[in-house]
Computed example of a mutant assay.
Amino acid sequence: MFGYEPELIDCGDARIACYDIGRGRPLVLLHGNGEDSSYWKAQIPEFTRFYRVIAVDSRGHGASENGTRGLSFALMAEDLKSVLDARGIKKAHILGFSDGGNLAIKFALTYPDYVDKLILNGANVEMFNGIKPHFQLPIYAAYGLLAAAAHVSKKAARRRDVFGLMVRQYGVTLDDLARLTMPTLIIVGERDMVRDSQTREMAARIPHCRVEVFRDGDHFVAAKQPSRFNRTVIEFLLGR
């Protein structure tokens, strides 16, 4: 896929695909809902100039298997720990986009010793209040349709489980963010689907956090403004 071959890591009931590329300090990339590691195709060539990139397909996404325990951020955080342990990585920078950002938050809260610096691109904590209604309401509608179709279609059942990650709270509250003591950068687009108030609340709760707002950007700034995005990430990680 996108020029790289995945390695499959045994995580108990499922094999999780990861792409281990480059050398140096590890940088983990976590894609969004319904996507896979190819979302980072404009980032990986640049990031591997400085870092060992570990791009992970979340459970039920891309080349990773579904397993038998359903989909949840808690389970995907366990998967990520298993992947890092299998690769001999005990500390890494973590960059997550959208649901991958939510996973990064869950992972950093559960396994803080594994996280060096944290970058959250278009992440949220509150599923309904954190997302603008004209984006979130269609997600609820699609989830309802997929839930009905799941009784007769395995494909619909898989998509229902993936969409389900966007309609339920994932066990994190805004107050929990005070435990994210690692240096943190939040990146959002000026026209992001995440509410401005949600981003401000998150930044206010995380002790060492700054926010970068991309002018004229939407939710997909990494894909649509890759040069600025890559530069912003690298400068943050290098401490500039």
Rank of each mutant, 00 (worst) to 15 (best):
L185K: 07
D85A: 13
G100H: 10
M182D: 06
I119R: 10
F50S: 14
H31Q: 09
K90G: 14
S197R: 11
S82K: 15
K117A: 01
A157E: 14
F128A: 10
M1D: 00
H93T: 04
A63F: 08
E201K: 15
A55F: 02
T181H: 10
G34P: 10
I16K: 07
D192W: 07
D176L: 03
L30Q: 05
L29K: 02
V125P: 01
Y111D: 05
K117L: 04
F220P: 00
E65S: 03
R231E: 13
G171P: 06
N129Q: 04
A157C: 02
Q43W: 08
F229N: 06
P226F: 10
E65R: 06
R195G: 06
K41G: 00
S37A: 15
D85C: 04
I54K: 08
M76F: 03
I94M: 11
R59Q: 10
A223C: 02
V188Q: 05
I9T: 11
G101F: 01
V152N: 13
G144W: 02
H93G: 04
T48S: 15
S197D: 15
K224T: 12
A77R: 05
P26D: 09
G67L: 12
D218I: 10
P26H: 05
I131Q: 14
D10W: 04
V152H: 14
H134E: 14
V194G: 03
A223S: 13
L118A: 05
I186V: 13
R200C: 11
A92T: 07
E190T: 09
A77P: 04
R205L: 11
G189W: 08
K106Q: 13
W40Q: 10
S38V: 03
